[in-house]
Nucleic acid binder design. Structure first.
Lengths: 297, 297
DNA sequence: GGCGGTTACGTAAGGCGTAAGAATT
DNA sequence: AATTCTTACGCCTTACGTAACCGCC
């Protein structure tokens, strides 16, 4: 069977209609070029070129084969360059898991970054709770997750995505909103919507730690897993809530947010997490681009 | 740069996901297959396969390259078989010149033959007068012509296409049509539409020869170049005409045809003519198919 | 006689197969 | 220990370049 090099030889001769010039274009001498054409003709059981001593012309079979040969050569070159770009991570697919909370805070900025710096990347977004993201990271269904709790073990790597303070979500009309400044003690005796220790382990532990440390004594009521649910409960009059500041972005009517004047609380972290073993080049370029952008910002 | 053999190796390994089985499929041993894949990866500056000692899997770059590799291999195979068929003359283009006269007598049968026996052949038909056909044969613009006069010289070859007698075209109402049998002497003194010695040299000479030989003495009037013009003139009352029998096929109203009872006239020949040097395989298969069909008929 | 394609031949590169190696289960 | 991919090495095919050849303007 013939090879791509034969096709390149044939295309050159067919275009030049002159073995000498074609050979020069191919950076070789005429004799081996003649031989390559003969081998190609033998492989195709067809005469492609008519050589009448002074003039070279295409036979009907050669005319039929030429556009095919061109297409094959061109296709192989474009396939090669495309594959190189996939390997370098310039084009490809990045499957990203994200929590509902990150959806309204950081995801839009990340997508904008990808669109600006890595326009060849397709980002497939899937909203998932943290533990689902960890599972899918593990089995390779997503390339990276946006989550709060860094899982144990060294199989994962991570990069900080956001760090924010805790705010108090307060229903409009609540006299607390009239206060000039807020302190943890202001929560004493008030209803406080709490986090589920299962579905929202990170925020559960962080808020509980904050309450312990600050000595506030609110009256814990519901246990919910997602921040937008929590803010909705505040709007519905179920009490106050401790939420990351970015909850403002939800724009929930009937709820306002206040920070503590002197806040000893740990910041709420959000990070990009991925498996170290993940060989998707799109992930690597994404991470590097994000890291580079962070340095600049 | 990589070659088609590398692509075949890669496709086999990517489909089997096992070097040993892929090598067996390719009728080779594993080690050179490994090496070919490495060379391909080197040429593409990309890792296409992940070999984790017990399991072989595609990288994103490999997944991107696989369909391209398949396409290229498939294209090269189909291009090869297509070219072989063009070379054998099973597919291709046959440019055929024909005279108006052959258009209503033999061309339909020829086209039917091609459609039946050589369905891959495109026949490009062009109606042309004889001398134009000879010119275009010479410069290669048509592959074969259907004409009456065999040109001199050995650069052409030919095959008989039709051989028919002369008939007399007679306008309806002419008392000649009442006669039981017709002899050349019946033309004596009658108007006869004649052929142009330039535009229709062959029929001019043939009919003149016939008149000389038979001793008929008609009154020659017009000189026309084409048979349908001639028959139209007969219908319009310009006299009688000597035409090939196939002129009946014209179905011109107001004209009927009669043969001579005892006709010493030479048959009117129609032949397929082509240049011996013509290398269009479509012409060769066409001629051979026609010749074979003639033997059968 | 010169231009242009082909054939002949020596050298070098590359592919294949066998054998040995390395890594994982 | 067995399976599977990789490396090492010898052999052979094949491509290249130089030189000689043939055919035609």
């Amino acid at each position: 069977m013939f090879e791509l090099s034969h096709l390149r030889c044939f295309v050159a001769v067919a275009e030049e209609l002159h073995f000498g010039r074609a050979a020069a274009r191919l950076n070789m001498t005429q004799p081996p070029l003649s031989r390559q054409i003969q081998l190609l003709e033998h492989a195709l059981e067809s005469r492609l070129l008519e050589r009448s001593s002074r003039i070279v012309s295409l036979t009907p079979a050669g005319r039929a084969f030429l556009p095919e040969a061109r297409r094959i050569v061109h296709l192989s070159e474009s396939a090669a360059s495309w594959t190189r770009r996939v390997w370098r991570g310039e084009v490809g697919t990045l499957r990203l898991g994200y929590t509902a909370a990150s959806g309204y805070s950081r995801v839009p900025a990340l997508l904008a970054l990808v669109r600006r710096e890595l326009p060849g990347l397709d980002v497939v977004l899937r909203e998932m709770v943290t533990h689902a993201q960890l599972e899918e990271l593990d089995c390779g269904t997503i390339d990276a997750g946006l989550l709060r709790a860094l899982p144990p073990g060294s199989r994962t790597a991570s990069l900080p995505l956001a760090s924010e303070g805790l705010a108090v979500a307060i229903a409009v009309g609540d006299p607390l909103l009239q206060r000039a400044s807020l302190s943890p003690a202001d929560l004493d005796g008030r209803d406080l919507v709490g986090y589920s220790p299962n579905a929202s382990k990170y925020l559960f532990e962080l808020t509980m730690g904050f309450l312990d440390q600050s000595g506030a004594r609110p009256n814990l009521t519901q246990q919910v897993g997602q921040i937008h649910t929590m803010v909705a409960l505040v709007a519905a009059g179920f009490g106050l809530a401790l939420v990351p500041e970015s909850a403002r972005c939800l724009g929930m009517p009937g709820v306002e947010f206040r920070r503590f004047e002197t806040s000893p609380c740990k910041p709420v972290e959000l990070m990009i997490v991925w498996l170290r073993g993940n060989e998707n080049p799109a992930l690597t370029t994404f991470i590097e681009t994000y890291r580079g952008d962070q340095v600049l910002a």
